[in-house]
Computed example of a mutant assay.
Amino acid sequence: MQTCKEEALNLQTYIESGILELYVLNLLHDSERAEVQDMISKYPELNQEIETIEVALESYAQVHAVEPPFGLQERIERSILETGRTPFELRPVDENSDIQKWLRFVTDRFPEALHAENFCEPIGEQPGLTQVLVVSSVDIEDETHEDVYESFLILQGKCKCTVDGHSFYLEKGGYTQIPLLTNHKVEIVEGPVMAIVQYLSA
């Protein structure tokens, strides 16, 4: 049976492991998140640690914040006028999005993207939500968003995402949402990579 001192030491070791930072950034697998939530239920004092981490990350992000893309709405409207396409009723992407439906959408609406090495066209915009179809054979440099959540659904190819220093891979069907005020970049592993990129207002 652990003594109070041993329990406190073990809890401090757990805090210093960095898992709470990954929990706050939503970078844990489901099993790992469940483990953290179980620890929080056993040790409510962890909530204070989580609040401290959130404040620290927000402060860091505000110092290093980069404005979201300027003029995106105007480019979307101009593209619609130039191509004669009617506005598309947006369907927000998430981890349950139907990849085949999106591929059919691209085939019907942006067939030129299927064989492109690099391609970027707005799909549409509505209050609080913007979507862009992107095909890229080159890496996407570091960026941070201050007041929009960026997420993307991979339709083809494979890429390596690095979010606040933590890396993971995404391929066809893969989805991720970037936490607000968090530095991130994308490296092409098997290209070109095609993705639905989504910006959701905070």
Rank of each mutant, 00 (worst) to 15 (best):
E6T: 12
A8E: 15
L9M: 14
L9P: 00
L9W: 10
L9Q: 15
N10I: 01
L11V: 02
L11I: 06
L11N: 10
Q12S: 14
Q12I: 07
T13L: 06
Y14V: 04
Y14M: 09
Y14K: 07
I15H: 08
E16S: 03
S17Y: 06
S17V: 04
S17N: 03
S17W: 02
G18P: 02
G18Q: 04
G18S: 06
L20Q: 04
L20Y: 02
L20V: 06
L20H: 06
E21I: 02
E21S: 02
Y23H: 10
Y23F: 14
Y23W: 05
V24I: 09
L25V: 11
L25C: 10
L25H: 12
N26W: 03
N26I: 03
N26D: 15
L27E: 09
L27H: 07
L28A: 05
L28I: 02
H29L: 13
H29D: 12
D30I: 15
D30L: 15
S31A: 12
S31P: 00
E32S: 08
E32F: 03
R33F: 00
R33Y: 00
R33D: 07
A34G: 04
E35F: 02
V36P: 03
Q37L: 08
D38F: 01
M39D: 04
I40Y: 11
S41Q: 15
S41A: 14
K42W: 01
Y43D: 11
P44M: 06
P44D: 08
P44Y: 05
P44R: 05
E45R: 14
N47F: 09
N47R: 13
Q48R: 11
Q48L: 12
Q48D: 13
I50Q: 04
E51W: 05
E51F: 07
T52W: 12
I53R: 06
I53D: 07
E54F: 00
E54V: 03
V55Q: 14
V55N: 13
V55H: 12
A56G: 07
L57C: 08
L57F: 09
L57S: 05
